[in-house]
C-alpha cells in the first residue's frame, strides 16, 4: 500500500516538474504579407496558440483562419471563402521541433538564434518546412520570432487569373509570440 502511494506521489511530482518546463500563450501574433505593387495585403491574427516544451524543443502552433483581420471587407471575404476555404479548413497548425534546442538556456536572459523544422498544415495540405527563428529569454518569459515564406501553390491555394497580378504568389509570414511558463 505504501509503495503504491509512493509511486503515485512520484508520478505526480514528475508530471509537475515536466509541465513546469512548458511555455504557452493564446495571444500570439501571426501576420503575413501577400502584397504586390498593385495592392497591399497584410492581415494580422493576434490569437495564435503556441506551446514550447523546453525539455524537448517540441513546438506547436495553431491559428484560426477566420481570425486574420484585413483592412478591406471584400479582401477578407475572398480570403476566407475562395482562397483558404476557412469554413472547410478553419485552422492552420505547425507541429515541429527546435533542432538545436540544447543551445538555449531557458532560465537565463539571452537571445538565441535557432533552426526549426516541422509540419505545416494549411488549407488541408500538410508539408514539411524548415526555417530559422529567434528565442529571446527575458525575465522568465520567452519571445519567439520567425519569418518565412510559404508559396501558395504548395498548399493548393489557387488565385483566379483576374486578380493574379494583385496577389503575391508567396506569402511572407511573420510570427511573433510572447510565452509565459505554463502553470497548472
Amino acid at each position: 500500500m505504501k509503495k503504491i502511494l509512493f509511486l503515485i506521489a512520484l508520478a505526480t511530482v514528475s508530471v509537475t516538474s515536466l509541465s513546469a518546463q512548458k511555455y504557452f500563450t493564446r495571444d500570439g501574433m501571426i501576420s503575413f504579407s501577400a502584397s504586390t505593387p498593385l495592392e497591399t495585403i497584410e492581415p494580422t491574427n493576434k490569437g495564435a496558440t503556441a506551446v514550447i516544451d523546453a525539455a524537448t524543443g517540441v513546438v506547436e502552433f495553431a491559428v484560426l483562419i477566420k481570425g486574420f483581420i484585413f483592412e478591406k471587407a471584400l479582401m477578407q471575404e475572398h480570403f476566407n471563402e475562395n482562397y483558404l476555404q476557412s469554413g472547410k479548413y478553419p485552422k492552420a497548425t505547425f507541429k515541429g521541433k527546435i533542432v538545436d534546442a540544447e543551445s538555449i538556456k531557458w532560465t537565463k536572459n539571452g537571445t538565441y538564434p535557432v533552426n526549426v523544422k516541422g509540419i505545416m498544415t494549411l488549407h488541408g495540405v500538410s508539408k514539411e518546412i524548415k526555417t530559422t527563428a529567434t528565442i529571446q529569454v527575458s525575465g522568465g518569459r520567452i519571445i519567439a520570432t520567425s519569418n518565412f515564406e510559404l508559396p501558395l501553390s504548395d498548399y493548393e491555394i489557387s488565385i483566379p487569373s483576374v486578380v493574379a497580378d494583385k496577389i503575391s504568389k508567396t506569402a511572407k509570414v511573420k510570427v511573433e509570440v510572447a510565452l509565459a511558463e505554463l502553470k497548472r
Binding site: R26, T49, A62, V63, L64, I65, K66, G67, I69, P90
Partner: peptide
C-alpha cells in the same frame, strides 16, 4: 463578435 472557431478556447474576433 464574429465566431472564428476553437483552438483551446472558443474564439470571438472584433
Amino acid at each position: 463578435g464574429e465566431c472564428t472557431g476553437k483552438l483551446m478556447d472558443v474564439e470571438l474576433a472584433r
